[in-house]
Design a protein around this nucleic acid. Structure first.
Ligand SMILES: [Mn+2]
Ligand SMILES: [Mn+2]
Ligand SMILES: [Zn+2]
Ligand SMILES: [Zn+2]
Lengths: 149, 149
DNA sequence: TTCTTCTTGCAACTTAGTTGCATTCGGTGT
DNA sequence: ACACCGAATGCAACTAAGTTGCAAGAAGAA
């Protein structure tokens, strides 16, 4: 993801002007195969051109507030950022690798959840029902087999 | 939760001696109606008797390592702790309130997830499939209605 | 250009958790 | 009672991730 989204339009639709840094952040998020942490986004950006980490955090906050980017909490203490669901991207579950900490997107149909019983009985307001799959990713399982320990 | 579990036995089954602080931590976790943060556990414990926060963190690590307590990540940056699933407690989904940050246990049957399609196709090792419900809890929805803003 | 607003950088701060090391506690053996 | 040893605790310092205040710089509007 994502080669179907025009980030410039996405920003301007929300009344945000498409400055260079906002575009850069969106490109890192959209080019990655799964959600990325703020630290990782910053690390990738400073390779091409210096940018302050606070600026990255502020841009991420802005994008999340405007529903362009989705913030998800991983297994550790940091947040991960991916393109928010829209007409091009259906909501989907994520896989969290316990070993490398990476997060992968799973296909939208790979897990189905029936939330009717909950919606009937729950007294608060349910906004989202997310499925989180935890385990060891393919890359980590194979690389551990070959590891000398 | 939980008045069916004997914490002393639970500890000794795992080769841990049931010292006073371990028992106290387990009691706070088990008496709470949902998962609690380490900070909250510490805050409650120091009301009855002083205990260092590092001690709380170390006990929690130990209980998690031994499968007595389950560590879950909330919507924020901190972890929450609840009694791990066992013969008395079936696994169940949790509800996360965006407003107050609280976590509630939902009944085991309130949500059902079909993970077969994923298990057939996924190339890594799937260990757990958890459902996370996010929204505004009953307490927060009612108290907001009466709020002057 | 000048005025104003948006954007960025920097330093300091906060929160949640971790680590190293010294002290103390709870047994066990004598 | 004593010495001994490992487990448990406390304290200070440190780290990771994110936030805040404020000043400086860039970009637009007039
Ligand atoms: Mn995704
Ligand atoms: Mn629970
Ligand atoms: Zn991995
Ligand atoms: Zn609430």
């Amino acid at each position: 993801m994502c080669h179907r989204c025009d980030y410039e339009t996405l920003l301007e639709e929300n009344g945000l002007n498409a400055g260079r840094n906002r575009m850069r952040v969106l490109e890192v998020i959209g080019d990655n195969e799964g959600p990325v942490s703020a630290t990782e986004i910053h690390r990738r950006l400073i390779r091409s051109d210096p940018i302050n980490r606070v600026t990255v955090y502020r841009i991420l906050d802005l994008l999340v507030e405007n529903g362009i980017v989705e913030r998800i909490s991983g297994e550790g203490r940091s947040f991960y950022y991916g393109l928010a669901a829209n007409e091009n991207h259906r909501p989907h579950p994520h896989f969290y690798c316990r070993r490398c900490g990476g997060v992968q997107c799973l296909s939208p149909g790979s897990l189905t959840v029936d939330s009717e019983p909950l919606l009937q009985t729950f007294s608060g307001r349910v906004e989202t029902v997310a499925v989180r799959v935890v385990g060891i990713c393919a890359h980590c399982t194979t690389s551990v087999q070959g590891k000398i320990s």
